[in-house]
Design a protein around this nucleic acid. Structure first.
Ligand code: FES
Ligand code: FES
Lengths: 145, 145
DNA sequence: GGCATAAAAGATATAAAACTCTTTTGTTAT
DNA sequence: ATAACAAAAGAGTTTTATATCTTTTATGCC
């Protein structure tokens, strides 16, 4: 696996996709999202259900239903999604897996690892869900392949 | 999970432990290692078997047997262990999980993620297996709790 | 040789993550 | 009201990661 779980990767890509597709208003259905980010449809549905319960995305059933975001969601940091799905472990845990990362009982990598871990956190925290809409529009960045 | 798999975490801690314990020569048994890094004994045995097959650690059966390292191993980069256990995915894969991380078809996080990923790689590559023996001796750093 | 030691190898077991399928519930439009 | 639509919920299955247990093989010592 990479740095994040597959579930988390799908979650992030899906949210970016929803942000992009519904920027002009409207909703986007699970099939289109799954297709747009190249993920298994039913599995993604589960993930989005969860994000919906946690208030990160919104959803509507029935005709013209689908997923969308409210205004405030676009300004949320990406770290909210990571924490919702994978927990805070990645931002706080020891690189060598000892029970408790601390200054008092540090592992050999502590100093250097902490710096990198904080950078990951910082990157995810300053990145907002909505900030890539333009790039996606222009095709400068992509969410699959 | 953290950045690395549990298997990989155990592997790194075990190798540091072996490096430390056998610095003066001799070998160290699986029980002592498992105890010293707080890991399940039989599971760790599997991991070390694997590292042994890959030539990262050495082992000897019978009385006074156990695990040890040859000279050159102490100078190996930690990244060798990570690659042996988790593969290169963590050093090369896309942060959002798209099939292929590339400059041509980058995901929204590509630029920033790549920088961090390279730092992880660099940290693991410049860190050698033997370089923490002194700190461990002095109790400045620890491999459990 | 015979015994003790200790890792290697093999076979399972358990749990968690990843993925699939079916049914239910709520919505909209006719 | 009913038919079509689309997500929610529930109940699986499959795969991968993690962990345990048992048997075999190699080594050193007497
Ligand atoms: S103790 Fe290992 S990273 Fe802090
Ligand atoms: S394409 Fe996502 S990190 Fe390079």
């Amino acid at each position: 696996m990479g740095v994040f779980s597959k579930t988390c990767e799908y979650a992030m890509r899906a949210v970016f996709f929803i942000a992009h597709k519904t920027a002009p208003g409207g909703r986007v259905g699970i099939k289109e999202i799954a297709n747009g980010i190249d993920s298994p449809e039913h599995f993604l549905a589960k993930i989005l259900q969860d994000l919906s319960r946690r208030g990160i995305v919104r959803s509507a059933k029935g005709p013209n239903g689908g997923f969308y975001l409210d205004e405030s969601a676009l300004k949320r940091p990406l770290s909210d999604i990571v924490e919702a799905v994978d927990g805070k472990g990645i931002f706080l845990g020891c690189g060598l897996g000892i029970k408790q990362c601390s200054e008092i009982n540090p592992c050999p990598l502590h100093h250097e690892f902490k710096a990198i871990r904080n950078q990951i956190h910082h990157m995810m925290y300053k990145t907002t869900i909505g900030e890539f809409n333009e790039d996606l529009d222009l095709g400068i960045t992509a969410l699959k392949k």
